[in-house]
């Protein structure tokens, strides 16, 4: 890409082409389905908690590149982390995607996930990036189903793009 600020950077395209932790999990202690009825994206996240640690995690589904790359990077990031660390990342990712924290000035644990920060300038794509994280949150709370459109969404909050 000519424009380095573009959302479609090589790392995102790479995760879209070769998603990490893609597929089903033989035995999952927690799982959830997420869908975005506006664009038809849907994915499932399954994980195994051993004590407080996420010992294994996988996702699968059908979605745009932003959603798939976000899910791929998410699973790579939270694997081995504690439930609490994962929840912190979920919150920070959501704040980054909705422009509520300035990742250059405020402290965070997002690391390479900041490559997805560009969605904050594309209101219609924010939900694509956040969907995997909503679904992970739902899985950790063993909520069976989640949606970026639902009032019952455990992460529901105005995203400024309705």
């Amino acid at each position: 890409m000519a424009d380095p600020k573009s959302l479609y950077q090589e790392v995102i395209l790479d995760h879209n082409r070769k998603p990490r932790n893609y597929g089903a999990l033989a035995q999952a202690s927690h799982k959830a389905e997420g869908h975005n009825p506006l664009c038809g994206d849907h994915l499932s996240v399954a994980l195994n908690l051993e004590g407080e640690h996420i010992a294994a995690i996988a996702f699968q589904g059908e979605s745009c590149a932003i959603c798939k790359a976000s899910a791929s990077m998410m699973t790579a990031n939270v694997k081995g982390k504690t439930r609490q660390d994962a929840e912190t990342l979920i919150q920070e990712f959501r704040d980054m995607a909705t422009g509520q924290i300035d990742i250059d000035k405020q402290a965070h644990h997002l690391g390479r996930l900041t490559v997805l920060a560009g969605v904050r300038d594309l209101p219609t794509r924010v939900k694509c990036a956040i969907l995997p994280w909503h679904t992970l949150h739902a899985a950790l709370h063993s909520v069976a189903d989640t949606s970026t459109e639902s009032e019952n969404d455990p992460m529901h909050a105005p995203l400024g793009d309705a």
Binding site: D3, C64, A65, L122
Partner: peptide
């Protein structure tokens, strides 16, 4: 390529199309 990615990339070239159902 998912239509939403098509739409976002076309928009970067100034081309406004609709993507979705």
């Amino acid at each position: 390529v998912h239509p939403h990615d098509v739409g976002t990339l076309l928009n970067q070239d100034g081309v406004a199309v609709r993507t979705g159902h």
